[in-house]
Design a protein around this nucleic acid. Sequence first.
DNA 1: TTGTACGCGTTATCAC
DNA 2: GTGATAACGCGTACAA
Lengths: 340, 340
Amino acid sequence: MKYVTIIDIAKALNISKSSVSKAFNNRSDIKSDTRELILRTAKEMGYSPNPFAKRLMNQCSFQIGLVVPEFINAFFHEVMIGIQEVMFEKGYQILIMNSNESSEKELENVKTLTSNMVDGIILSMASQENVAYYSSLIDKGFPIVFFNRIPTKQINTSKVLFDDYKWAFFATEHLIYQSFKKIFHFAGPSSMAISKQRKLGFIDALKKHKISVDEKSIIETGLLISDGQREMEKLINSGNLPEAIFAVNDPAAIGAMKILKKHGYKIPEDVALVGFTESKLAELIDPPLTSVAQPTNEIGRTAAKLLLEQIESKGIFVPQTVILNGQLNVRESSIKLNEK
Amino acid sequence: MKYVTIIDIAKALNISKSSVSKAFNNRSDIKSDTRELILRTAKEMGYSPNPFAKRLMNQCSFQIGLVVPEFINAFFHEVMIGIQEVMFEKGYQILIMNSNESSEKELENVKTLTSNMVDGIILSMASQENVAYYSSLIDKGFPIVFFNRIPTKQINTSKVLFDDYKWAFFATEHLIYQSFKKIFHFAGPSSMAISKQRKLGFIDALKKHKISVDEKSIIETGLLISDGQREMEKLINSGNLPEAIFAVNDPAAIGAMKILKKHGYKIPEDVALVGFTESKLAELIDPPLTSVAQPTNEIGRTAAKLLLEQIESKGIFVPQTVILNGQLNVRESSIKLNEK
DNA sequence: TTGTACGCGTTATCAC
DNA sequence: GTGATAACGCGTACAA
C-alpha cells in the first residue's frame, strides 16, 4: 500500500510541495485557482495527509489513552462510550487498555501510552499502588484525569467521582425504611476505596437508625457473580440468613439471588436484595433488582471534557473535582410485602 | 511535557546521535562500553523513542483498527478482548470505532483509520453498502479481515464466520424434538445477512420435519430487547400465541420473555423460548434462556491472527475463511415439561 | 503569489 | 567503532 504524499502531487502539477501544503492549510498566500487545482488533483490521486509527519511536527498526537481495571462489567463500556462521544467530536482518537485488576499491568499500560505520546490519559485504577508515579507525571505537566477508582490521597489533577458513601447510605436506609431489621452487607475487597466507602455508608446508615452493627453482618465477598454465589452458599449453610442484603455491586447481588432462588428462597419475602452500580441485568432478572444507578455516560463525558481542558490549557489549569449524582432505582427485590 | 530525544542524549555525552540510535537498535557496530553508557544515561534522562518519527521512517504504524456496528451487546466486547489478547502480544495497538449501525459512519470510520495509517482493519459491517469500496482497498493491498457481518458477495480477503444457518437450524430442531408444534420466529432486519441465514435455518428445519411454514409465523422484529417486547405485546393482543419462539438473538428473546411474564404466561409451559448468540443474560434471567453460543473470544483471536498474517505477508497471502463452531446451550426456557 | 530551506526525531548508508 | 548526512512527509519562515 503506497501512500500519496504532497510531493507526488507537486510533481504531478509541476509546482512546489509548499504550495500544496498551503492549499491544504487554507493559507491566504495562494491563488484560489491553484488551490482548487491542487485540491482536485489531490482528491483524484487519493491523497491523505500522513498523520505521523504531522504529529512529528506539532508534538501532539490527537490521541488520548483510556485505562480501565476491567472489561467484564458494562460500567466501563458505558463510560467509554461517553468519552468517545466527546473526544471524536474534537478529532481525538482513544486508545483503550485493560489492566485486568493488576497494578503492574496498569503501570505498563500507562507507560505504553505515554511513550506513544498520547496527549493525556483517563484512568481508573486497579489499586493505589502507582499513585506516586502518576503524581510525578502530572507534575511534569502530563494531563491525567481520574474517575471511579481514584487516588485516595490528594493529587493535583481533575477527578470525576461518585459519592459511594452517600449512595450506599441511601441504599441501606431504603432497606431500613422498608422495616427490614437484620441487614447484611456483601462488601468488596477491603483494599479498594470504593468498597470501603460503600461499607462505611452501610455502617453509618445502620448507626443513624440505631441498629447495632454486628461483625458477622459484613462479609467480604468480591465483585463477581461467582463471589456472590459462593458467599450466599456459605451463608445458607450456616443457617444465619438475614432479612435483607445490601451488596457492593450488582454482580454480587445477582450471584446471591441465584443461589437463594436455587435453594427455594423467595425474594424479597425471605431475603431482600439491593445492588450497586446499575447494570442492564438489574431490570431483567427476576425479580428486578433494586440498585444505585451511576450516570455512566455522563461520567465519561465529564472526564473527557476535563481532560480536554487540561490538554488545551497547556499547563495552567485549575484541577477540578466533579461529583456526579446518582439515583436509587427501587425495584421488586427490596420491597417489603404486606403480610398475608 | 518536553520529551527527551536521542539528540539530547548525544549532546549530554558529547557523541553523535547516530551512535545513540545504534545503541538502541542493538547494532553490532558499537562498542559495548559506549552502548552501556548510552542506555544508562538514556534511562536517567527519561528517554523514550518517539513513535511518530519511527513510523515516519518505516511507514508502518503498529496500529490496527477495529470497526464494529454496535456496542450495546456484549458480543463485540468479547470479540474485542480476543483481538486484544493476540494483538498486544505482538506489540500492536487497537483503535476501536463504532459505526452505530450506520454505513455512512462506518465508511467514515474506515477512512479515518486508513488515513491514520493503521496497518490493517478488522471489520464487522453495518450493511453491505460499502463492500465495493472495501474491495478496492483490498485490491490496493490494504489488509482487511471481516467477521460476523461479512460481505455476502465474493471478496478477496480472509473472513471469520459462524454458520448462522446451521445453528439456527439446530436451535429450531431442538424445539421440534421437544415436540412443540406451533413455532414462530422473531427475525432480524431482512437487510442483514445473518438475519436471513438464521431465518432460512428456521424455515428449513420446519420443512425437514414436515411442519408447514406459515407466513404469520415469521415476524420481523429487530435486534433489541425493546423490539422483542413490542412484537410480543402485539402477538399477545392478537391472541395468536405460539407454543415456542426461536428469536434471532438473545435480546429479542429476552424482550419477549419479559412481556410474557408480565402478562402472567409461564415459560416454557405456555410459550417456550430459544435465543441466539449467547449473552451473559441468558444464564441469569429466570427461567434461564436456551441459546446458541458463539465462541466470541476465539472469533476475535482468529480474526487477529488472520490479519497479522496478511500484514506480515506484505501482499502475497492466501485469503482464508474460517468457520468456527458453536454450541446450543439448552436451558429451562425451551424444555417441554411432562404433562401433570 | 510562489518556491527554497530547514526542522521535527528517527534510522540507514556511507565515509572516516 | 564512530560520526556525518540523507531520507521519511509535513509545515512554515523567509527569500524571490
